[in-house]
Every structure is written in C-alpha cells, then in structure tokens.
Simulated assay, not measured.
Amino acid sequence: MTASSSITISVETPLSDDMRAMIGELNATLGSLTPDEANYSMSAEDMDGPETTVFIARVDGQAAACGALYRHADGIGELKRFYSRPQFQGLGLARRILEHVSELAAREGLTRLVLETGHNYQAARRLYEQAGFSECGPVLDYPESPYSVFYTRPLRAA
C-alpha cells in the first residue's frame, strides 16, 4: 500500500468471488487455530440473509478485509466474520469496519453488540477491547468453552 492508495468500505454481497475467496481464507485460518467443536464458521450463503449486513474494505479495488453485523432478537447485534488479509493487516481496516457496523447498529436502534472470538486471537481481542467491548460470559446460544472469549458493548441509538 502506498500513500496514494485508495481505501473504500462499503456494504457488499457475500456471494461475490472476492468475498467467497476471503471467506475461504478466513475459514482456513480459523480451522488451523480452533478445534472443530469451537469453530463457528459461516459460508457465503449463511451470510446472505436479510439479518446480515457484510462490509468489505478494499484497497485500490482489492478486497482487503471484511466484517458483518448479524441481527438477533431483543435489539442485539452480533459481530461476525471480521478478517483482514495478511498483506493488509496493520492498516486499521478492521477498526474502520467495526465503526461502520457500530454506526449501522445504532441507526437501526439495536441496544447491544456482542461477539464470540477465539481465546488465542490476540489481535481480535485487542481490537474489541480498544473499541470499548467488555469481556463477559457466553452470549446468545454459544456454549461455554475454553476456546472462546465473549464480549459485549452497549449501544446508544443514533
């Protein structure tokens, strides 16, 4: 990436070739770090419903990072599928996607964001903690697991 590189973040379909490739990379990475019983991967098709909004960061048009908002009942939004391709890590793309997800959730009147992440995903945990998330017990229907860490953060409606 150069000083003149263009970064865009927008809502896109998870069914594009770009996103399918990134989801495949994400699933392979998580599969190498997390036992099957604690791996909550989603396919592109799983992400293609009205309850999910997928954001993609592009650097000079190339898909570089992604993250999604998954809506649950009772005003709860779940962060899903946050990933930055290795060559784009360190650019703050995940933080910027998280800001977009948070703004959308607040505009829609959601009252709380929650997430599950791996106990050994240090970069992800730093991102969420720096964004004001607090570690908590299991959320939604996730089971207690030594491989999972759960976070929550209240939202104010926009």
Rank of each mutant, 00 (worst) to 15 (best):
Y70H: 15
Y128S: 00
G49P: 04
D74F: 08
G31C: 06
R58Y: 01
R107C: 08
N120S: 15
Y121V: 08
T53D: 05
T29R: 09
L69G: 01
L140Y: 08
N27W: 11
A21N: 05
S102M: 09
N39Y: 11
A123D: 13
C66D: 02
L30A: 12
A63N: 03
T52H: 06
L98C: 06
A44D: 02
F88Y: 11
L110A: 07
P35R: 11
T152A: 14
E78R: 10
D74C: 05
I56P: 00
E12K: 03
Q122T: 15
T111E: 15
T8Q: 04
Q122S: 15
T117W: 10
A106H: 06
R126G: 11
A21T: 10
D74E: 15
I76F: 08
A38E: 07
S32D: 13
E129W: 10
V11G: 01
R126Q: 13
N120E: 10
P146T: 05
S6R: 15
D18P: 05
E25L: 06
L26N: 02
A57P: 02
T52Q: 10
D48G: 03
P143D: 12
T111W: 06
R107I: 08
S43A: 09
G92D: 03
G92Y: 02
L91H: 07
S6K: 15
S41N: 15
E25M: 05
Y142R: 06
R153E: 00
S134A: 15
S148M: 07
R58E: 01
P86T: 01
R153I: 05
R153A: 10
P138N: 08
T52M: 13
R95S: 14
T8H: 07
A157S: 13
F150G: 07
L30Y: 14
H119D: 06
S134W: 11
V54M: 12
P50D: 13
D74H: 10
I76C: 09
E129T: 15
A124C: 03
E129I: 14
M42G: 12
A123H: 14
G109W: 07
S5W: 03
L110P: 02
L98I: 06
N39M: 06
R58C: 03
A63S: 02
E144Q: 14
S43K: 12
V101T: 06
